[in-house]
């Protein structure tokens, strides 16, 4: 990441209220092109909600979200078109059970980007090659392990050639022995220069690969900095308290 890289995602004074519960209480932040940002914090701190506001799966109560300079919180814009460039990976994979591995990947590119079937298939196979799932191309997801499903979910998102990838606790639902495979794929992605926002409980991963770590607590970003600063010399008492519990 170069210092004057452009901001790809910006949020301004983001608030989100669920009934009486204010989950996000004013977040202003930006993510630059090529940056790998990890979001850590205790459960219920609003990390996932914040992430889900970035592609408007959750509509913020107030505040703005800009993607590549366009305000996507504007009700008049075609949100589907912008979401195509924002990949997302979920904790519970959410692969399409009624489609084969290959169909899972080619569905969105052929439908929404009008890429010819053959071309979409070739690209999908190349992606499957990268994550070691080529031999599963004609299987249905029920035949895959959790780790394989998550790798499929990652390449499904990548097939849309997104500008940024959002990860929502991508390894939290996995058996321990599967975690490494999935982290490996995300690591390759980070090293390839992809912009990544990663909500995670994997502190080792956040420390090793992030350009920046955001610590969230009670709906705000309580502290942020380089991994070295956050893990080596945290300033905020809540950060210190949280890290003492998880490390």
């Amino acid at each position: 990441m170069t210092k004057d890289a452009k901001a790809i995602l910006q949020v301004v004074d983001l608030h989100k209220q669920f009934k009486d519960l204010e989950v996000l209480r004013g977040i202003t932040e930006e993510v630059r092109e090529g940056e790998v940002v990890s979001i850590i914090g205790p459960s219920g701190s609003g990390k996932s909600t914040f992430l889900r506001c970035l592609n408007l799966l959750e509509r913020p109560t107030s505040g703005q979200v800009y993607f590549q300079g366009v305000e996507i919180t504007d009700k008049k814009i075609d949100i589907d078109r912008h979401r195509q460039k924002i990949g997302m990976v979920f904790q519970h994979f959410n692969v399409f059970p009624h489609l084969t591995v290959l169909q899972n990947i080619t569905l969105a590119p052929t439908l929404e980007r009008k890429i010819p079937k053959e071309e979409a298939k070739d690209r999908a196979l190349a992606l499957l090659e990268q994550v070691g799932l080529v031999d599963k191309q004609n299987e249905y997801p029920r035949k895959l392990s959790g780790g394989q499903k998550q790798r499929l979910a990652i390449v499904r998102a990548l097939a849309m050639e997104p500008e940024v990838m959002l990860f929502d606790e991508p390894t939290s639902a996995l058996d321990p022995e599967m975690v490494k495979d999935v982290l490996g794929v995300i690591k390759d992605l980070a090293l390839s220069g992809m912009t990544i926002v990663n909500v995670t409980h994997e502190m080792g991963f956040a420390r090793e690969l992030s350009d920046r770590v955001l610590f969230m607590d009670e709906g705000v970003i309580a502290e942020q900095g380089s991994p070295r600063e956050i893990f080596g010399n945290p300033q905020n008492s809540r950060t210190i308290d949280f890290l003492s519990k998880v490390l």
Partner: peptide, 27 residues
């Protein structure tokens, strides 16, 4: 149909129509 399917379809940028026809209804 699991709500995660809707979210995954939306996150890929599928239109509501395509989401219904290709993801939700077949399930």
């Amino acid at each position: 149909v699991d709500f995660g399917q809707t979210e995954a379809a939306k996150s890929l940028g599928l239109s509501n129509r395509n989401m219904m026809c290709y993801v939700i209804l077949p399930q």
